[in-house]
Design a protein around this nucleic acid. Structure first.
Lengths: 156, 156
DNA sequence: AGAAAAAACAGAATATTATTCTGTTTGAAT
DNA sequence: ATTCAAACAGAATAATATTCTGTTTTTTCT
């Protein structure tokens, strides 16, 4: 069960990654296949979990989320204990949560309206989490690049 | 020109954010509008730049990108000089590039196949960048949450 | 290698949708 | 109140999604 992707799959992924709303018919024309065959492939990519979701990227400023920050969180948890991370991941403003190497530490990506909102978020939510020892916040001044578009190779 | 979003817009955004491939007809039914009216709104949201892109989230492991890292990059650039960041942002493996407060420092999010690939990437690309002083790499052991879904309020 | 099984595909049919157009309603500003 | 513009609904048609059937290709197992 190599479940590996052939070149056609990779071209499909490359195309859909940058335009999730491309029509099945257009995709089929692009790769010179029948729409039915194309649909089969796409469905299979979804089933296999290669395609995880179709999402719309929204301008954060238009939702009044102008502050981006990365927060290093230290927890008192031993290995295997994931209570802190479970609670952190439930917070909607927490967009990313990574367990990082080095210390007993998480790296958290957060969006909020402004510095005040972030402070409030940390007072209201972060501080309430048991086992959370300390935080170190890094404010983003300017984002030069922000994408989730993975580099798709021609072959694997 | 407030260009502000009403409740219908927000519901559209909330829906499309988590399912970019929802049909215009379904959206119209959901919000009890005519498809033509729905289409007008969506087009307008695209024009205004509220909707920035429709993307497909792909399982990174299936593209053999199993390593995620955050790299703090120090540059010798004075304010206003953006040569280092311009070169960094061109690297496909660099998914995010933020100018952060504190030091003359960027925070870079990178995906690569494995530690070796990352080392190679840094040798081949990062080291070649003039004005790049030093890097401090943080390896992600495990990602608990990774989304670009913004919290959409009921009103603004 | 050769047969059997499975997967991938094409073509056609139909249900659904996207898109455009026209005219109406709504809302805001004068 | 009147005018203007934006938002909307309804209908028409062009395009698409989806399903089905049968064929080709690929894989698997002996």
């Amino acid at each position: 069960m190599s479940s590996s992707l052939d070149e056609i799959d990779l071209r499909i992924l490359a195309e859909m990654q940058s335009d999730a709303r491309v029509s099945n018919a257009d995709l089929a024309r692009l790769l010179k296949m029948a729409p039915s065959a194309m649909l089969e492939r796409v469905k299979k990519l979804e089933q296999k979990g290669v395609i995880q979701a179709y999402t719309t990227r929204i301008n954060a400023a238009s939702l009044d989320l102008r502050l981006l920050a990365f927060i290093f969180v230290k927890s008192s948890e031993g290995p295997g204990n994931i209570s802190v991370s479970k609670q952190l991941s439930k917070i909607p403003e927490v967009l990313e949560l990574h367990h990082i190497a080095g210390e007993d530490c998480y790296l958290v990506k957060v969006r909020a309206r402004d510095p005040q909102s972030l402070a409030q978020l940390m007072r209201d939510k972060f501080s309430k989490i048991n086992g959370l020892l300390s935080t170190k916040t890094t404010i983003v001044l300017e984002t030069m690049k922000e994408t989730n578009l993975l580099p798709v190779p021609k072959t694997l």
